[in-house]
């Protein structure tokens, strides 16, 4: 079935295996009653459940909590967080500023754009190595394909302050020797020995932990959505408390114009 027949089949109703609400009665989430069967979950556990349909152990949840916590920086200079702060400065709403911050966090060089590529690379590479491929060849292939490896190297700094506390927690929780974590550090060692000098960043380590938790690339990508959220309210609040318009005000002298020189405007030509 395709075309308008397919569309007609789906018209006027929602057929779902995920859930729904029967207003005034009950709410079903992946086959369970939210208010009587899932009501003791903490929010993060529930969020992971809605994505995967699976339950996670307390040790796994400690790791998952860290992936969000360790990335929640209250620093309004950081590009995505600056948006929440600018929204505070212009007296926009907190919800708009924080939503836009998270939307922008799906970036090519950090955040969700890196997350999904990093976990995909680690999962693919592990599978290929289990089938006999050499790590060096896998890395070379990825470098050729993507001109870099997601999760290795960092735009503003070579070191990543999140690695040590994450690994300390991973050791405590028993996740420091997972196959993807071991692979991630093997990749770093290879890159360090070569001319690239890329070090592992949190995106690489977090993706390795996500893979060792059994998340698929899409599950991990969706799980990481609120990763920067904890940093957005303080940025918004502080900017909203300052006099309006005083977050990073830019004078005309802050603009370095590099375009064509001044020229006289002419109305459109006929052609």
């Amino acid at each position: 079935m395709n075309g308008p027949e397919l569309l007609q089949k789906h018209a006027d109703h929602l057929k779902s295996r995920m859930g729904g609400c029967f207003l005034g009665d009950r709410v079903i989430s992946r086959g369970y009653n939210l208010h009587t069967e899932l009501n003791t979950m903490d929010w993060m556990e529930y969020y992971a459940f809605t994505i995967t349909g699976r339950r996670f152990t307390p040790q796994q949840l400690r790791i998952m909590n860290a992936l969000w916590l360790y990335t929640s920086y209250p620093d309004a200079r950081i590009w995505n967080l600056r948006i929440a702060a600018l929204a505070g400065s212009t007296r926009s709403t907190g919800n708009l500023g924080m939503s836009a911050s998270l939307a922008v966090s799906e970036a090519a060089i950090y955040g969700r754009g890196i997350d999904i590529r990093a976990i995909d690379f680690l999962q693919r590479t592990l599978k290929e190595m289990e089938n006999g491929a050499e790590l060096a060849d896998c890395i070379q292939k990825e470098l050729k394909r993507s001109r870099g490896i997601a999760g290795f190297g960092r735009p503003l700094s070579s070191a990543d302050e999140r690695i040590a506390p994450t690994m300390a927690l991973a050791r405590e929780a028993g996740f420091d020797q997972g196959p993807h974590v071991k692979l991630a550090f093997a990749v770093e060692n290879h890159l360090q020995a070569g001319r690239w000098r890329f070090r592992i960043n949190a995106g690489g380590l977090f993706a390795a932990l996500g893979a060792d938790l059994g998340l698929t690339a899409q599950e991990y990508y969706l799980f990481m959505f609120p990763a920067f959220l904890g940093g957005t309210p303080p940025c918004y609040i502080e900017s909203a408390e300052r006099p309006e318009g005083t977050l990073f005000p830019l004078s005309c002298h802050h603009i370095r114009y590099e375009g064509p020189p001044k020229r006289t405007w002419q109305p459109l030509s006929e052609l």
């Binding site: 830019l250 004078s251 005309c252 603009i255 114009y257 375009g259 020189p261 001044k262 020229r263 006289t264």
Partner: peptide, 26 residues
């Protein structure tokens, strides 16, 4: 901030206020 699109010149009494704006030179 580097831009090839927009030039702004300040008012004489306030560098944070625009006296003239040029788009690609116009």
């Amino acid at each position: 901030i580097h831009t090839q699109i927009w030039l702004e010149e300040p008012e004489p009494d306030n560098a944070f206020a625009t006296k003239a704006a040029y788009c690609h030179g116009y």
